[in-house]
Simulated scan of single mutants.
Amino acid sequence: MAGERTRERGELEGEVMRLLWKHVDPMSARDLQDLFTGPVPAYTTLLTALTRLEKKGQVIRSGDSPRKVRFQASRSGEDFTSDSMLSALDRAGDRHAALLAFAGTLDDDDVALLKSAFGRKSSKR
């Protein structure tokens, strides 16, 4: 049925970003369309999502004609996630409590990785 929502709000943008992060080279909207495994968004819907992501600074558009327009992520998925985590901490009413709550949800492998990273950081000083 026309106009029926197949994804939650923001889900399409998230899927587009995951696809762009997997492919380093710039891609056309048609290339992206071919990579969807679930419901394939209409071409115009995909272009709308890409334009919104460009306005948010998450996507870089290149190309001089409509048929040659390509898109790529403006930064890596890891950088995006790191910035999102820092933003969430900045918005927290109690940064200390938020960090402790987050740390309490980490599994043993994540804790070991962080300890290792902190050890390398302090040994560089």
Rank of each mutant, 00 (worst) to 15 (best):
M1K: 11
A2Q: 15
E4N: 10
R5I: 08
T6G: 12
E8R: 14
R9H: 09
R9N: 11
R9G: 05
E13R: 11
G14I: 06
V16W: 07
M17W: 10
M17A: 06
R18E: 13
L19E: 08
L19N: 01
L20D: 02
L20R: 08
L20P: 05
W21H: 14
W21V: 05
K22N: 10
K22T: 03
H23K: 15
D25W: 12
D25C: 14
M27T: 12
M27W: 07
S28I: 04
A29M: 07
A29G: 15
A29N: 12
A29C: 10
D31H: 11
L32R: 10
Q33I: 02
D34R: 15
L35I: 10
F36R: 10
T37I: 13
T37F: 03
P39L: 08
P39S: 15
Y43F: 12
T44A: 07
L46K: 06
L47I: 05
T48I: 07
A49K: 04
L50K: 00
R52H: 04
R52Q: 11
L53D: 01
L53V: 03
E54T: 05
K55T: 00
K56W: 00
K56M: 01
Q58Y: 07
R61V: 00
R61I: 00
R61K: 07
P66K: 06
R67W: 13
R67H: 11
V69F: 00
R70T: 03
F71H: 01
Q72R: 14
A73E: 01
S74I: 03
S74Y: 01
S74W: 02
R75W: 02
R75K: 01
E78I: 05
E78W: 07
D79W: 05
F80A: 13
T81V: 12
M85I: 15
A88N: 05
L89V: 04
L89N: 03
D90R: 15
R91D: 03
D94H: 03
R95F: 01
A97M: 09
L99N: 11
L100K: 07
G104V: 06
T105Q: 08
T105L: 09
L106Q: 10
L106P: 04
D107L: 04
D108S: 15
D109W: 06
D110S: 12
V111L: 13
V111C: 05
V111P: 05
L113K: 08
L114P: 09
S116F: 07
A117K: 11
R120P: 09
R120Y: 06
S122E: 06
S122T: 13
S122C: 14
S123H: 06
S123M: 04
S123R: 06
S123F: 02
K124H: 03
